[in-house]
């Protein structure tokens, strides 16, 4: 479970202080597929960065899978990120000099797994996204949709509890976007909690729940298919 209580984030310069997020109270239950919508600059990505432990918040408290992350040092935060969170980015962020296999291997390298265990996980993840046959290819040999599937494989290879996706279909055409969305739904159906930022209202509707953020504040929460979830 991901739970934020009165979390605030400020960006300060010499002249002004900008409230990126104000007193955010959000709870994402295990197995949920939650979409985050809102206009540009509303604080969606900031929320995702805080949720993914990539940035620190200034006020409030945040529990990730029951762990209070407040005051944890960098090693502990990195360990949590590696164990519990998988990231999917709009621009894929694949490393062009590494093969698909090695790209998927990156987060596993930080975990100290044996070579055999890494291999099994990588091949399984690539199998799920349907790219096992192309594991020795390089990102520039793939289409955008395929690259995003590799990024998803990288995100799920470590078997995280949460997937945080920042506009994962933003750089894809509608066909590829649909395929990626279906893939994410499959992964969610198998029990992984997904929090996805999107601008696309159609995709937002497909989630269990949509959280709307405006001016750094959570304004609207609409339940969609919460009834399907085991709370």
């Amino acid at each position: 479970m991901l739970k934020m209580n009165n979390v605030s984030k400020f960006y300060r310069t010499n002249l002004i202080e900008t409230h990126a997020l104000k007193n955010v109270n959000i709870q994402v239950k295990d197995g949920e597929f939650v979409t985050i919508t809102g206009p540009s600059g509303s604080g969606k990505t900031t929320f995702l960065n805080l949720a993914g432990l990539l940035e620190n918040f200034d006020e409030g408290e945040y529990f990730l899978d029951g762990i209070d992350v407040t005051g944890l040092d960098d090693n502990a935060l990195s360990h949590l990120r590696n164990e519990k969170i998988g990231f999917i980015f709009q621009s894929f962020n694949l490393l062009s000099d590494l093969s698909l296999y090695n790209n998927v291997e990156v987060p596993l390298n930080f975990r100290g797994l044996s070579r055999k265990e890494r291999k099994e996980r990588i091949e399984h993840a690539l199998e799920i996204v349907g790219l096992a046959a192309r594991k020795h290819h390089y990102p520039n040999q793939l289409s955008g949709g395929q690259q995003q599937r590799v990024a998803i494989a990288r995100a799920i290879a470590g078997e995280p509890r949460f997937l945080l996706a920042d506009e994962p279909t933003g750089n894809l055409d509608s066909v590829m976007a649909r395929q990626v969305m279906e893939l994410l739904e499959d992964i969610n159906d198998k029990g992984t909690t997904i929090v996805m930022v999107t601008h696309d209202p159609q995709l937002a509707k497909r989630a269990n729940r949509n959280i709307h953020i405006l001016d750094g504040q959570v304004n609207d929460i609409r339940e969609q298919r919460l009834t399907d979830l085991a709370v």
Partner: peptide, 16 residues
């Protein structure tokens, strides 16, 4: 920077 940021996001600590 981008590579390191990705590593950090995927779980690499500063000490790594």
């Amino acid at each position: 920077s981008k590579r390191v940021s990705l590593y950090r996001a995927l779980g690499a600590s500063k000490s790594y």
